[in-house]
Each structure stands twice: as structure tokens, then as C-alpha cells.
């Protein structure tokens, strides 16, 4: 039951961590260029859904298809390669390498893909300009503000021109003004590259930047669009 034209779909995902059931038959689908907010109370399994969709965590049951490939059939090396080239990630915090400068952090995914340092940093800088953080290029993450750091993280997530951007509470550690700026820049950038965005958040004002909303409750997903 893959919706026509969708880029990434999941069907009947189940994932159990020890005694807790994180996902209990969750479904998901996203089209290219679409921004989908995944909401739900804490502990509902929304982060686990994101981890499964991104191929970071293997579901116990269910199927995930990306662009015609079944993620559940791929081995770790293939998944890592997929994440490096097709996906981008933004987390709440603790994702930037504290020793590297901001521009080096942004360039990191390109370099992991084998790009030359100069080229990687040049591309990184254009993304930093787009996210209005080129002024902290040579600072270390610890010397930049929280909002800047998060925009650097967004730049890093987008630098490989991923087809899907996974953002897990990207504004969770920011105040509303900074959070909204990050969301504006993130969604603008994603739309300009036609990247799909899976946006996990518990803030409705952040979710309002999405095109569509999924609510996860007790490990089950609910597509809110079908209700209206």
C-alpha cells in the first residue's frame, strides 16, 4: 500500500526495546519535496520512527522502502553509504564535532564521501552563507551561539544535497525566535533543493512549518491529513 509517487514509505513498523514497545505497527510515507511533521507525546516512539526511516535502527518487523529499495534488506555498509549520500541529519544537540571549526564540521559529510578538503569547504561555505552562519566559519562550535550552532548543523545536513532531511527536535534547545529562524532557513533550503523533510518535534509552532502532520501515539502512527 505504497502511496503513489512517494519517496520513502514505511509499513507496519514494530520495534521493541527490552520491555518497552517503541513502535507498534506504524506507517509512514513522504513525497519528494514534502515536509512532514512527526508529532506525539514524549516516549510515543516518534524518534524511533525517524531512526527506523533513516536506516539507523532496524525495525523488528515491517518494511521500509526508499526510492524502490527495501532498507530492511540492506546491510550496514550499504545503509551507511545511503545515509552518507542520500540523507541528511539534524539533531537537538551534541552533533557537531567540538574540535573541528564550523566550516570543517559542515564539510565533514562531503569529506567522508571522499571529496577534497578545499572543494568540500568551498561547498560548505556556500551552505553556511545560505543559513547565514558564514561569520562563524572558523570558530569552533563551542564558540558559536546555540542558534548558530544549530544552523551550522542544518548546513551540514544539507551540504550533500540529500533527498531526505531527518530533523529530530532541531529547535529543541533553542528559544522561539532562534528556533523559528532555524525552521525558516531549514524549510527554505529544503524546498529550494526539493528535499523531503521528516521533522520530529513536539512543538506545534515548529510543526506549522510542515505540509502535513503525522501523530505517533503508543507506537502507532496517525496521518492527520486524512481526518480533515
Amino acid at each position: 500500500m505504497t502511496p503513489a509517487g512517494s519517496l520513502l514509505t514505511a509499513d507496519g513498523l514494530r520495534k521493541v526495546y527490552g520491555p518497552t514497545t517503541a513502535l507498534d505497527g506504524a506507517d509512514f510515507s513522504i513525497h519528494p519535496g514534502e515536509i512532514v511533521a512527526v508529532m506525539g507525546p514524549s516516549g510515543s516512539g516518534k524518534s524511533t520512527l525517524l531512526h527506523c526511516l533513516a536506516g539507523i535502527v532496524r525495525p523488528d518487523a515491517g518494511e521500509i522502502t526508499y526510492n524502490g529499495q527495501r532498507l530492511t534488506d540492506m546491510n550496514d555498509t550499504a545503509l551507511s553509504a545511503l545515509r552518507r549520500s542520500e540523507f541528511g541529519f539534524v539533531f537537538q544537540f551534541g552533533q557537531l564535532v567540538p574540535e573541528l571549526t564550523c566550516v570543517e564540521n559542515v564539510a565533514l559529510p562531503l569529506r567522508l564521501n571522499g571529496a577534497k578538503r578545499k572543494d568540500a569547504e568551498r561547498t560548505a561555505l556556500t551552505w553556511m552563507e545560505r543559513l547565514e552562519v558564514d561569520d562563524v566559519r572558523d570558530k569552533r562550535p563551542g564558540q558559536a551561539s546555540g542558534g548558530q550552532g544549530q544552523r551550522v548543523a542544518v548546513a551540514r545536513a544539507l551540504v550533500t544535497s540529500p533527498r531526505v532531511l531527518f530533523a529530530d527536535e532541531p529547535t529543541g534547545a533553542l528559544d522561539s525566535l532562534n528556533g523559528e529562524r532555524v525552521m525558516e532557513l531549514l524549510t527554505d533550503a529544503a524546498r529550494s533543493t526539493n528535499a523531503a523533510v521528516v521533522l520530529v518535534t513536539h512543538e506545534t509552532r515548529v510543526a506549522a512549518y510542515s505540509d502535513r502532520e503525522i501523530v505517533v501515539r503508543d507506537g502507532k502512527s496517525r496521518d492527520m491529513e486524512r481526518l480533515v
Binding site: 506545534t204 509552532r205 510543526a207 506549522a208 512549518y209 510542515s210 505540509d211 502532520e213 501523530v215 496517525r222 492527520m224 491529513e225 481526518l227 480533515v228
Partner: peptide
Amino acid sequence: DTQRAEHLRLMR
């Protein structure tokens, strides 16, 4: 949920 979706629609 229906109400929620309606709210979010307006928020968008």
C-alpha cells in the same frame, strides 16, 4: 485529532 488537524491547518 480532527480539531487538532484543523488548528494546525490554520497555523500553517
